[in-house]
C-alpha cells in the first residue's frame, strides 16, 4: 500500500518535473536561434556592397526576430539540404551575437578563410539557389528559402518586412539594415490620422477595461454563489450531524449550559491580575562568577 503510494507520488513528481523541463526548454528555445530568419540575399553583385577585402560577392542576411540577443555561433548555413553542416558558423567571435531585431550579413563567396562571415559556398547566377539555416545540432531546420532563377544584377531578394512572410525583389538593396525603412511609428500615425480627437481610443479602451472587470465580476459572482451554497450546505450538515448523533451526555449539556449561563450573566469571577516579580537572592552562580571571566595570571 505504502509502496504504491510512494510510486504514485514519484510518478507525479517526475511528470511535473518533465513538464517543467519542457516548458523551460521551449521558453529557452524561443529566445534562441529559432528566432533567426533568412531575411535578404543578393545573388549577383556587380556594382554593390563591398566586403572588408574590397571584393564584390553575393551575400545573405539573417535577421533576429526576437527581443533578445541571439548567438548564431555553432549554427550552420548551407546550400545543400543533404549537407546541413556545410558551413559551421565559427564560435568565439563576439560579432556572431545578434542584437534584438537586428541583422547579420554573410558573404556567399566560397572564401571561408576570409573570416567568420564568409561562407564556403557561393551562389549560382544561372539557376535557383537554395539556402538553409540549421540549428547547432545540424538537424533542426530553422529557416530556408529558394531564391528563384533569373536574378538581376544588384537586385536583392528579401522579405518585404523584416521577418515577414512575403518575399519581393529590392532594387534598392538593404544589407544589414531594415528591409522596410521605419522613419515613424505606424500605429501612432494611424491614430493621428484616423482618431485625432481620441474618441476611438476612449471608446475602445473603456470597452476593454469594462470587459475585463465585467469578466472578473461574473467569475466572482459565480464563486460567491458557490461559496455561499457550500457554507449553507456545511452548516446544514453540521446541524444534521448534531441531530443524528443521538443523545448528548448529561455532562456535556451541563457544561454547555454552565458556559452559556456564565457568559450571559457575567458571573465569571475575576482573577487577580497582579504580576509580582520577587527578587531571589542567590549567593553564587557560575553565570555571574567573575572567576571564569578573568585571565589567568602570568607565571613567573
Amino acid at each position: 500500500m505504502n509502496i504504491n503510494r510512494i510510486c504514485r507520488k514519484t510518478c507525479r513528481v517526475t511528470v511535473a518535473a518533465i513538464a517543467l523541463m519542457i516548458v523551460v526548454t521551449v521558453a529557452a528555445r524561443a529566445q534562441r536561434t529559432t528566432s533567426m530568419r533568412i531575411n535578404e540575399a543578393l545573388v549577383i553583385n556587380d556594382d554593390n556592397f563591398l566586403d572588408d577585402y574590397g571584393k564584390k560577392s553575393g551575400w545573405l542576411e539573417l535577421y533576429n526576430t526576437s527581443a533578445n540577443v541571439v548567438n548564431v555561433a555553432g549554427c550552420f548555413l548551407t546550400d545543400d539540404i543533404n549537407d546541413p553542416k556545410k558551413y559551421p558558423i565559427p564560435k568565439g567571435d563576439v560579432l556572431t551575437r545578434v542584437s534584438p531585431r537586428q541583422h547579420v550579413l554573410f558573404w556567399v563567396d566560397s572564401m571561408a578563410w576570409h573570416g567568420t562571415f564568409h561562407v564556403n559556398f557561393s551562389f549560382k547566377p544561372d539557376r535557383a539557389n537554395f539556402i538553409a539555416f540549421f540549428d547547432s545540432d545540424g538537424k533542426t531546420l530553422i529557416d530556408s528559402v529558394t531564391i528563384p532563377a533569373g536574378q538581376q544584377s544588384d537586385v536583392s531578394y528579401g522579405r518585404l518586412v523584416d521577418g515577414g512572410d512575403q518575399w519581393v525583389s529590392f532594387t534598392k538593396v538593404t544589407p544589414s539594415t531594415n528591409n522596410k525603412t521605419l522613419d515613424s511609428n505606424e500605429r501612432i500615425d494611424n491614430f493621428k490620422s484616423n482618431d485625432g480627437v481620441g474618441v476611438g481610443m476612449t471608446v475602445t479602451a473603456m470597452c476593454v477595461v469594462f470587459l475585463g472587470l465585467i469578466m472578473l465580476y461574473c467569475v466572482f459572482k459565480f464563486v460567491a454563489y458557490l461559496a455561499i451554497l457550500l457554507t449553507t450546505k456545511r452548516a446544514k450538515k453540521a446541524s444534521d450531524d448534531v441531530q443524528l448523533s443521538g443523545e448528548i451526555s448529561g455532562e456535556v449539556l451541563a457544561a454547555i449550559s454552565a458556559a452559556l449561563y456564565e457568559l450571559d450573566e457575567d458571573v465569571h469571577d475575576i482573577e487577580r491580575t497582579i504580576l509580582t516579580i520577587q527578587k531571589v537572592r542567590r549567593n553564587y552562580s557560575p553565570w555571574s562568577s567573575k572567576i571564569y571571566t578573568l585571565r589567568e595570571a602570568p607565571r613567573k
Binding site: 469594462f210 465585467i214 465580476y217 459572482k221 460567491a224
Partner: peptide
C-alpha cells in the same frame, strides 16, 4: 471588499 461585492469592480472601471 471587492470579492464580497464584485459589482464594485464596475465602479473601478
Amino acid at each position: 471588499a471587492l470579492i464580497s461585492n464584485p459589482k464594485l469592480m464596475l465602479v473601478g472601471a
